[in-house]
Design a protein around this nucleic acid. Structure first.
Lengths: 152, 152
DNA sequence: TATTGTTATACTCTATAACTATA
DNA sequence: TATAGTTATAGAGTATAACAATA
């Protein structure tokens, strides 16, 4: 079910705005951030992928003029990404269709009670997953001599 | 939530058996099929992807000796894919860890009632999505001559 | 030394279109 | 003609490792 939905969502984003799923997530996150800005690390928190993958997608956004990148003021190691007016415009173009896809495919067969249950249950799963030490994101070699590797 | 879970699942499949998510789906489907066989078209029904993508993954399985491919007996246009003993072996290798990932990440914060609700609600969504006409060719905002194109 | 991020690179996967062969 | 599947190809996306720069 999740695969089917994801596939349709990605297709709509691509057709309506030429956006990959990750690009949409980044733009949406930036759009909701104060000043339309966020640091790469903050952006990474919402996404699964590697830092290099994030850099790649952010570069694509910059090339299309949907976002700008600049060294962070507070911490010069960091990069601050900011959504542009054109970025917001693309987001506006894409959003109605995005909501429509979800409405058609996900919400149509559900009533208010179903949606509430889903939000509750999946919300708990999400919180749980976030609280779990990300086995994946944790480089194996991170373990010092004191910590015996679990995954052999 | 779905992305996080999917990512962890894919990682486990890759580490435990060198399987992509699609390959695992194919092997699992074959394993549950009578005689361990199914036609490409039948396999495609369970998966989102294109036929060429399915051919690609089936070829990989064949190269690794996890499945065989042969012309179908009834309909010589078709290809019958069959899981091998080694394919079942890899499936057995991978399965416990697969279940463990789902247990850890998905089911831990849920009780029996939650799981039942989830199965009910998502089951209806799945049925609904399957009943809907192919999404790819149906851009819903694509209107007739009355609506001017706004994406110029 | 640890953290932030980029680059170089190699690889996997997917989709489109053209093609073959059978129904 | 329609259906089943493969092949050729091209492109998008991802991860790993090496790297530079700042804290």
């Amino acid at each position: 079910m999740s695969s089917l939905l994801r596939h349709s969502v990605e297709q709509q984003l691509q057709e309506a705005g030429g956006l990959s799923y990750v690009q949409f997530q980044l733009l949406a996150t930036l759009g909701d951030s104060p000043g339309g800005s966020a640091r790469m690390t903050d952006l990474a928190d919402g996404v699964v992928y590697s830092r290099s993958g994030l850099t790649y997608q952010a570069q694509l956004l910059e090339k299309r003029g949907l976002a700008t990148r600049a060294p962070s003021v507070e911490d010069e190691r960091g990069t601050t990404v900011t959504i542009t007016a054109e970025g917001r415009s693309v987001l506006d173009d894409v959003f109605p269709g995005h909501v429509a896809v979800l409405g058609d495919l996900l919400f149509t067969p559900l009533d208010g009670s179903d949606v509430a249950q889903l939000a509750d249950v999946l919300g708990r799963v999400r919180d749980h997953m976030r609280s779990v030490p990300p086995r994946s994101a944790a480089p194996r070699r991170r373990s010092r001599a004191t910590a015996p590797p679990r995954d052999a």
